[in-house]
Write a protein that binds this DNA or RNA. Structure first.
Lengths: 264, 264
DNA sequence: TCAGGTGCAC
DNA sequence: GTGCACCTGA
């Protein structure tokens, strides 16, 4: 028996909004130790998405056996549009290779209960290596700031070079109409910590990434006020949104190598 | 002489917004006993629309003879877009088979007066039987709630089964991605009566309807905080919006018969 | 291509 | 709180 009761339905709604453009059919995993998890390459097999909602995120959490559920995210997203932001969401599934999942939305205010039965799919499991390294450089900054920068720069060019130095983080783009550099300097706000830009660095690092993917990642902005961007030479970057007390959403993206940059 | 002065012009604007997608050319009737009335089948001849604005709705009401005016709703809607929400609207027409109608919008705040003359049309009168029965089951609920449910469910499937039992009202849909049930339980709010869901039932009734039409009816949501849905076996349902102290807008829709349900 | 919803600015 | 503009889904 799987039963997950999430009092803030809006959380699941935001999560789906943030991944539905990147992924189509994915296996959600559930276990009593890890909670609800998802790891998947994006549809074009370039980026990797990793989501965890720890058991503690849920008002009620029961997962008798480790479970994998193949879910069409377009369909799930459509169902979740039927939930109000204030609804309590409960997911239920049978223990062993269920072929459907039940979603229940409770709106306490209007005494309204909606329940949905969604068909599950068979999705071939991917075996993913998620690197668990410490990074040479990390920047923590307001998530809206990061989203704004990625959006703005994508109007200038396709590829952004991100440089983390001890002074701050620099985003550079060049395109047909010219070049752009945006620098966010290390700056800690005591009054509003969530507005700080914090550099944590062993080595300065500069890597280039396709903005197209970063702009997909920033769909997760509503999940957290801050974003944590980590980079090391020749390793995929990580863009992480911590979900307050509930887990995280992480996106991994390989840097462009020199040759890529030239052909682009 | 016909002269109707409506101090809340916004009312007429809302009424037109709510029917213009369902109807195209209709005869408006006016009489000193009934006020301003409209009965018409929708363009596809499936649903029936019935509107009444009682004489008392109007700040000034004069209707010397019973009158029928053929109106192109697209045109009337376009004219009413020229009226502000706070405008006072006056309609005038000649007594006997007028071929035009005059509309005047007075904006007291800006001392602005607009007047329009619109051509009337000859529209063949339909002879409509509007059943005046008592219904086996009626649910009164917040109109926005009803609108939200119809909209949400139409993302899952085309046909909704509505069941009224003494516990509450259940909306059920099945579609390619799964099934959905939304239950609103009988629940009377003393503090906010307009948020109550009230079941009034002699017999439990379950009928199926095409969501497409319900979603047209809910365009009338701005007319009232609450909606009254009435059903009896083998009779058209009624979806009624009472216009506070001024009349009503009612929509009638025949249920799908079993065969319809199967072919769908 | 159009309409509806959402987020942002005033 | 309202209106505009952008963006997304049908």
């Amino acid at each position: 028996m799987l039963e997950l009761r999430l009092s803030q339905g809006v959380l699941l709604k935001k999560i789906l909004e943030s991944v539905k453009d990147l992924l189509s059919n994915v296996n959600f995993g559930c276990s009593s130790s890890e909670g609800l998890c998802l790891q998947s390459m994006d549809s074009s097999h370039v980026a990797l998405v990793s989501l965890q909602l720890i058991p503690h995120s849920f008002e009620f959490f029961r997962c008798d056996r480790n479970l994998s559920m193949g879910i069409n995210l377009t369909h799930l997203s459509r169902l979740l549009k039927c939930a109000g932001n204030d609804d309590v969401i409960t997911m239920k599934a049978d223990d062993r290779s269920p072929d459907t999942i039940n979603l229940m939305f409770e709106n306490p205010k209007h005494d309204r209960i909606s329940d949905f039965e969604m068909k599950l799919m068979d999705i071939e499991a991917e075996h993913l290596q998620i690197p668990d390294t410490s990074y040479e450089a990390t920047v923590t900054m307001p998530s809206q700031e990061f989203a704004r920068i990625c959006k703005d720069l994508s109007t200038i060019g396709d590829t952004v070079a991100i440089s983390i130095t001890k002074e701050g983080v620099k985003f550079s783009v060049s395109g047909a109409i010219g070049n752009a550099n945006i620098i966010c300097r290390h700056n800690i706000s005591v009054v509003k910590p969530e507005e700080s830009t914090i550099i944590d660095m062993k080595e300065p690092v500069t890597l280039s990434f396709p903005l197209r993917y970063l702009n997909s990642f920033t769909k997760a902005t509503p999940l957290s006020n801050i974003v944590i961007v980590s980079m090391s030479h020749d390793l995929p970057m990580v863009v992480e949104y911590k979900i307050s007390g509930a887990g995280h959403m992480r996106f991994y993206l390989a840097p462009k190598v020199e040759d890529d940059a030239m052909e682009a």
